[in-house]
């Protein structure tokens, strides 16, 4: 199993948010994507799952689509819809059920187990609108548990989540690592990265450093990341780096 970025560039209105990024994620390990705001972290994840189209280059994953789980940012989800917690978690079985198929009794069992794991067994029948941000994030983690994927992509999983919930969900990340799954998470908390993610991709549109966390998150690298992120130009010249030759 491998997750490789080949010279990936993704732009918004011709301004690259992810610029000629190449590298390979450590297989069966947890990698944090770290960097200042606007560094292209979420954009990179979206391009990896195919929700955004790259301008050039590609993300090559040896995983089948059913083996990739993706947690979007909470702001992308319409929480006002009258759906129950159970129904939302059941959507994690999409690869089995598709648009029309059934989920079966064992599917429902898996959902019940997942909800128990994140501590929300009592909430199965509640509407999602009645949940707090932290509870809702637990529900989304339950959906990932149900997906049972080998590659797990998390976009800012701990935003607007209290300390206890963060701690519980980080324990899940640790468990996934122990199970040999590949976890890639966009994070903002330096301490979390150090404690739970052995590998880090530090980026500011381009790769600043990528490798073992302790060698990546140095003061010098972090300073470079902030400097590069600040270099936004309205009239930047067209990039001449030849993707294919590089």
């Amino acid at each position: 199993m491998s997750v490789v970025l080949e010279n990936l560039t993704v732009s918004y209105q011709r301004h690259p948010a992810v610029h000629h990024v190449s590298g390979e994620f450590a297989d069966g390990e947890a990698t944090a994507i770290f960097g200042p705001n606007g560094a292209g972290k979420s954009t990179l994840l979206k391009a990896m799952v195919g929700a955004l189209r790259p301008d050039s280059g590609r993300a090559v994953m040896s995983h089948r689509r059913a083996d990739i789980a993706y947690l979007p940012q909470q702001s992308e989800i319409d929480r006002s819809l009258p759906i129950t917690v159970e129904d939302l978690v059941l959507s994690g079985l999409w690869h089995r059920s598709g648009a029309f198929g059934g989920v079966g009794r064992d599917g429902r069992m898996r959902v019940a187990e997942a909800l128990a794991t994140v501590g929300l067994s009592e909430f199965a029948r509640r509407p999602i609108a009645a949940l707090s941000s932290g509870q809702f994030q637990r529900v989304l983690f339950a959906r990932i548990l149900v997906q049972d994927a080998r590659l797990i992509l998390l976009d800012e999983p701990f935003n607007a989540v209290d300390a206890k919930t963060t701690y519980d969900l980080l324990a899940l990340v640790r468990r996934w690592r122990a199970e040999g799954r590949t976890v890639i998470a966009v994070l903002h908390d330096y301490e979390q990265v150090h404690a739970y993610f052995p590998y880090t991709l530090l980026m500011a549109r381009e790769v600043v450093a990528w490798g073992k966390t302790e060698t990546v998150l140095t003061d010098a690298n972090l300073r470079r990341a902030v400097e590069r992120a600040a270099h936004w130009q309205d009239r930047a010249p067209v990039c001449r780096v030849d993707g294919e030759a590089a």
């Binding site: 990739i68 979007p72 992308e76 989800i77 319409d78 819809l81 939302l88 959507s91």
Partner: peptide, 8 residues
């Protein structure tokens, strides 16, 4: 509910 997840 969750368009990005569905695309994923």
């Amino acid at each position: 509910l969750d368009p990005v997840f569905m695309r994923a």
